[in-house]
């Protein structure tokens, strides 16, 4: 049977890792390729790069990073951030990305996801959705989609929208709780569970991991197919292997090759 996946995620700005990765014994701790190699050795199940480069002229740098990573790490690589056109996707895939994650462009034009899935296949189209729990009723939303790092609300219910994305051919949902992101207080497991039980494609839980208990809860309570985390791995608090051994001890099916 399929194993639950652990996916470390790196934020990359102009080809450099941001949010301070802090590995010992690393010659260049800002080089995404060096860090990718470490995660590869530790047995990460996939890698995720989020390109946060703002300026248009610097956006090309990510392609070289992907190529160099794919040359050395024989594991799946997802790249997101600023994916807006079919040409963006083509270039990322040709550089060596296995999957491309679409966020704002999917919200602005849901049919873009259909076009992308028709063109490149559902297997490489991830739709990334950022959601916040509604305290006051806003229409029928329970969790509303936000864009621009949680600044802009959309009025869209994340579960309903995700179902539409499945219909349009998305292969996977990367679900981030904006309430939890950066808090290190654990996933929004209710949101994750609601999503996982309502869509037929795999769901990656994201946002809020502070320790290994949180990772396990994303799978056990949230019913996620994969868990994504950044800081707990970057700062060397836990290795991927430690996380996997912990999860396996909790009865989760995990790959340790």
């Amino acid at each position: 049977m399929l194993k639950s996946r652990i996916i470390p995620c790196l934020d990359v700005d102009k080809g450099r890792v941001v949010k301070g990765v802090n590995f010992l014994d690393l010659q260049d701790a800002g080089d995404p390729v060096e860090i990718a190699k470490i995660y590869d050795l530790q047995g990460a199940d996939e890698l995720c790069f989020l390109d946060i480069t703002a300026s248009h002229e610097d956006r090309g740098i990510i392609f070289d990073i992907i190529t160099r990573t794919a040359e050395q790490c024989f594991m799946p690589l997802t790249v997101g951030g600023g994916v807006r056109t079919i040409e963006d996707i083509r270039k990322l895939l040709l550089s060596g990305a296995d999957k491309v994650s679409i966020n704002t462009a999917a919200i602005n034009n849901p049919l873009f996801v259909k076009e992308a899935a028709d063109k490149f296949g559902s297997q490489c189209i991830v739709v990334a959705l950022d959601a916040k729990k509604e305290n006051k009723k806003y229409g029928n939303c329970r969790w509303e989609i936000y864009t621009h790092g949680g600044r802009n609300r959309t009025g869209l219910d994340v579960i309903q929208f995700a179902k539409k994305m499945v219909e349009y051919g998305a292969g996977e949902i990367l679900l981030t709780s904006m309430d939890k992101d950066g808090t290190r207080s654990g996933f929004d497991v209710d949101l994750t569970n609601e999503m996982s039980t309502n869509v037929t494609i795999p769901v990656i839980a994201s946002g809020g991991v502070g320790n290994l208990v949180h990772l396990a809860a994303g799978i056990i309570d949230g019913k996620a197919d994969a868990v994504l985390a950044a800081s707990i791995f970057h700062f060397g608090e836990y290795t991927i292997l430690e996380a996997k051994e912990y999860m396996r001890n909790q009865g989760i099916k995990i790959r340790i090759d």
């Binding site: 399929l2 996946r5 996977e172 494609i201 795999p202 197919d225 994969a226």
Partner: peptide
């Protein structure tokens, strides 16, 4: 169980 069959088996 989900489709695509995606991940490590």
């Amino acid at each position: 169980l989900k489709i695509p069959h995606m991940g490590w088996n």
